[in-house]
């Protein structure tokens, strides 16, 4: 007589197998892709069109916090951050926390700058301000070394590490996207009301400089090394799809060589400059210009920073420095 499988054993085994399979499917990397209909829905700045070629600038002094405030007020008027943050908003502040380097190395945004932005958003009535970055280096170390975790938390932000399963695949459906079809973007970026992109000014081994447009790569998951093939077009596509509500460039320190990782203090110079605007492309166009920031002589000219031209082609801003209106 063949041994009969008791019903209970069969059911429990089958049930356990089904649970296991469901668990496998739920785990990223084992099952299907993320949520396919995820879309970016943060508001554009109300003046986004009008201020496309306009930047706010604050230079001098040794207080980055005051520079941030001044630059924003120069651009937006007295209402400052209130022009784009409303009562009860969920705000994501995406600083560059990409590298495990202390602030003096200029590889990450100055913690004071991040704290100030967080404070201003809170004062403008934001319900939650989230601060995070998909770091390039070992994330926990980057958060600590940059000093941003501590400073932002003190200023009242919710600071957390990115988790792999919370990236959602976003279709790059805009016809202006020429190269990228889709990319996983962090969930909190997709569900926020306002995205504030806070970049730091550094040289870059592949695209000469890394400023606001490239900083947005911190919202991306997946294999970001694959952004490096035709990076300029990729960055334009990214900025078209994930257009920040507001951009701030921290050039308190400028890394003039060894970027973007850095690690040598002698490659960092102080510029005590904060630039802000509604267009990442326009800010990059101004900041990449060797006339405005202390880029090393002969390192690059504006034309070499092709992402600006690609961004302007997509209508994100201007690639012509003469057209930029500086509110200082």
């Amino acid at each position: 007589m063949a041994h009969r499988l008791p019903r209970r054993t069969f059911l429990t085994t089958a049930g356990a197998a089904a649970l296991g399979a469901a668990g496998m499917a739920a785990l990223p990397g084992c099952g299907g892709g993320g949520n396919a209909d995820a879309t970016y829905r943060a508001r554009a700045h109300p003046q986004a069109e009008a201020w496309k070629n306009r930047i706010g600038l604050a230079q001098g002094g040794d207080d980055p916090a005051r520079n941030v405030q001044t630059a924003i007020e120069n651009l937006c008027g007295k209402d400052g951050v209130r022009t784009f943050v409303r009562q009860g908003d969920i705000v994501v502040v995406k600083p560059n926390i990409g590298w495990a380097q202390v602030p003096e190395m200029g590889a990450t945004v100055d913690p004071t700058v991040v704290a100030t932005v967080v404070r201003l958003c809170r004062e403008a009535g934001a319900a939650t301000v989230k601060v995070f970055d998909n770091s390039v280096g070992t994330d926990a170390k980057c958060y600590q070394f940059s000093g941003i975790e501590e400073a932002a938390r003190e200023a009242g932000a919710d600071v957390f590490l990115c988790q792999r399963h919370r990236f959602r695949t976003v279709t790059f459906a805009d016809p202006r996207c020429k190269r990228l079809k889709e990319w996983p973007i962090y969930d909190d970026v997709l569900t926020c009301d306002v995205l504030v992109n806070v970049a730091v000014a550094k040289t870059h081994n592949l695209c000469y400089v890394t400023l606001c447009m490239k900083n947005l790569m911190g919202t991306q998951g997946g294999d970001r090394g694959k952004m490096h093939q035709e990076i300029h077009q990729n960055l334009a596509d990214l900025n078209v799809t994930i257009t920040p509500t507001f951009n701030i460039l921290d050039a308190t320190r400028v890394m003039i060589d060894g970027g973007p990782g850095g690690g040598r203090k002698d490659q960092v110079v102080r510029a005590d400059t904060i630039v802000c605007g509604t267009s990442s492309t326009t800010i990059d166009c101004w900041a990449a210009d060797p006339a405005h920031l202390p880029w090393p002589k002969g390192h690059h000219d504006l034309k070499a920073v092709e992402m600006v031209a690609r961004g302007a082609e997509a209508g994100l801003g201007t690639a012509d420095p003469a057209k930029i209106e500086v509110a200082a």
């Binding site: 490096h228 850095g262 040598r264």
Partner: peptide, 26 residues
């Protein structure tokens, strides 16, 4: 390697070399 084998731009390795004096140059 993409630039060597396929003529595509990359340099991700150089970008992320953690040494203050990078051990990868181009």
């Amino acid at each position: 390697c993409l630039p060597w084998a396929r003529g595509e731009e990359c340099l991700t390795c150089e970008e992320q070399c953690p040494l203050p004096d990078k051990a990868i140059s181009h």
